[in-house]
Design a protein around this nucleic acid. Structure first.
Length: 575
DNA sequence: ATAGGGTTAG
């Protein structure tokens, strides 16, 4: 009778406690299955404190009850409690079984620190002979990947015997999640070559996501078409991933067609569209979608608002942005309370519009502890507006909070360079050398014929190098005669003008554009993906090129898209 | 009587 009660009352915490009291006072011999039920229901409700109380009252709980508690901690994102529980388990000499480790390893992943716990747990796993178990090994691979231990993860994954579909999918997924999409692609190809495993909708979702990251429209379409051919169920998650892939490749047209065709749309579909349109610079459409969504009774979540705020930011709509931020802050829905990312969006919005002091005040008054992302947004705005004094102040904060992120130091040095303060530039540079902060090297890529072609600055490694440079020269000559003047202000080194020009003219995005001019079809846009922000000069260059060649150029940088057509950019010079 | 994989944001 009691277990029936437990089954039906799973979502009501008060009732659960009442039943527990009843169990205790009834004097009935308490069956383990009943307690498992109780623990599981408390887990679902999220009352892990009470679950722990119930657990602690048990006399010598069997391993599976420990496991149930572990499961609860993992489900409710309480890694520290998991680790403590594991220690207790070992102190009491309770032997973990094969079910224990997947939970514990996942808890370490959630904890976010590998040493010393991660290695120690791995050692325990090996000691207990569970490393060869596919499920445990899969979790270990995910753990190492999440800690940036790519080599360890790869080694472990490759030494797994008889990998099944879930193991492959897990690895591909975690590659994408950690920004290693090229590796995900490689892995997918290997998986396809393995006759023993077939792919499923999980694989497709991760692959579409990878193609979005890489800006690989052709491969993405290929993966999807293959899924269709092989009768894989393309559910809403697959379609959402495809939607995102189109938007991340700059194809808003295809995204809109798909969005209108979709049988089902959920909050993720709408948010994907809003975020995607904001990124592509069409803020009006993004905000229109937001209104439409509400008219259709779909409740926005915090990601939707990130899209809305970034739409305002990219269009310089300060008042609109403040309005939406206010809606969030006043909402009775607790899950819509502005988070750090929203504050960062607001700082970006204010700062980019030149309201640097207001942005600074906004940070000082915010109720949450500002993180590097928020200060970074302000520093970025200082760079845009050449604001040295505030920039220095912000950079000082960032050296404290995020000394390992080179991008912030580079921003500061760029601010100095733009002001011609070369001795300050040198100081920042030498500080970076001392701290060992690395700059991320810029690169651009273009997809052609199902292949991604990568270019670094001044790259001469591409097989078509000669033709690319010739094309570049030809185009430069043509656009110079039309009034293009190299924007030498974008060179952040103290070198002579002539040298500046040649350094500029070999930026990775220019090489990529030249490659696109040689290879793509005239009617297709040239899609360039860049890992960092693009510079002023390349922006001007792309505008001219789009005019003289009558080709559309779609360029994605770290923050947003630039759609160049006939000499005009979709960003309207606001970026 | 318990275990590993997926979409928006970062």
């Amino acid at each position: 009778m009691l277990s029936k009660l437990l089954q039906t009352s799973s979502s009501k915490p008060k009732q659960l406690k009442k039943i527990h009291a009843l169990v205790l006072t009834s004097g009935l011999s308490v069956k383990n299955s009943l307690l498992t039920h109780l623990l599981e229901n408390l887990t679902l409700v999220g009352d892990m404190c009470y679950a722990r109380k119930v657990f602690d009252e048990m006399h010598k709980p069997r391993v599976f009850l420990w496991n149930t508690l572990f499961k609860g901690y993992v489900k409710n994102n309480l890694p520290f409690e998991s680790v403590q529980l594991y220690k207790k388990m070992r102190d009491l000499d309770v032997r973990p079984d094969e079910f224990t480790y997947p939970f514990v390893v996942k808890a370490i992943s959630q904890l976010g620190v590998l040493a010393p716990c991660g290695f120690a747990f791995h050692a325990h796993v090996v000691k207990h002979g569970f490393e060869t178990l596919g499920i445990v090994a899969t979790e270990l691979v995910m753990m190492y990947m999440k800690f940036g231990e790519l080599k360890s993860a790869q080694f472990l994954f490759e030494s797994m015997q008889g990998k099944d579909l879930v193991a492959w999918n897990a690895f591909i997924a975690v590659c994408v999640q950690t920004g290693n999409s090229a590796l995900a692609l490689e892995c997918y190809n290997k998986m396809c070559a393995d006759d023993a495993v077939l792919f499923d909708s999980f694989t497709v979702v991760s692959m579409l996501s990878a193609c979005g990251q890489l800006g690989s429209l052709e491969i993405g379409k290929e993966v999807y078409d293959r899924a269709r051919r092989e009768g894989i169920d393309c559910n809403i998650i697959v379609e959402n991933a495809r939607l995102d892939m189109f938007l991340k490749c700059g194809s808003t047209e295809e995204a809109m067609v798909l969005f209108e065709e979709m049988e089902q749309r959920n909050v993720v579909s709408w948010s994907t569209m809003i975020v995607g349109y904001a990124m592509n610079g069409d803020s009006d459409e993004a905000l229109a979608l937001f209104n439409m969504m509400q008219n259709q009774g779909i409740r926005p979540n915090y990601v939707t608002f990130l899209g809305v705020l970034s739409a305002c930011s990219h269009a310089g709509l300060v008042d609109e942005g403040k309005k939406y931020f206010g809606i969030m802050a006043r909402s009775s829905d607790k899950s819509l309370e502005p988070r750090k990312e929203h504050y960062a969006c607001m700082v970006d919005l204010l700062g980019r519009s030149g309201l640097l002091e207001e942005a600074y005040e906004f940070i000082k008054n915010m109720p949450l502890e500002p993180d590097a992302g928020i200060w970074g947004a302000l520093l970025g705005a200082c760079a845009v507006h050449g604001e040295i004094k505030l920039g220095q102040k912000v950079a000082d904060v960032l050296v404290e909070t995020a000394p390992d992120i080179g991008a912030y130091q580079v921003l500061l040095s760029n601010i100095y360079a733009a002001a011609g303060k070369w001795h300050c530039v040198d100081k920042v540079r030498s500080k970076m050398r001392k701290l060992g902060t690395k700059k991320v090297a810029a690169y651009s890529s273009v997809e052609f014929d199902g292949q991604l072609h990568y270019f670094n600055r001044g790259d001469k490694s591409h097989p078509q190098t000669k033709a690319i440079y010739e094309k570049l020269e030809e185009v430069l000559k043509k656009i110079r005669s039309m009034g293009y003047v190299p924007q030498t202000g974008s060179v952040f080194h103290d070198v002579e003008t002539e040298e500046k020009e040649s350094s500029l003219s070999h930026h990775s995005e220019k090489l990529a554009i030249a490659f696109g001019l040689i290879n793509g079809r005239v009617e297709d846009p040239i899609r360039v993906m860049k890992n960092l922000r693009t510079c002023d000069d390349c922006h001007v260059f792309a505008k001219f090129v789009s005019r003289v060649t009558s080709r559309d150029i779609i360029m994605r940088d770290k923050n947003r898209f630039h759609h160049f057509r006939n000499g005009v950019c979709s960003c309207r010079e606001f970026w």
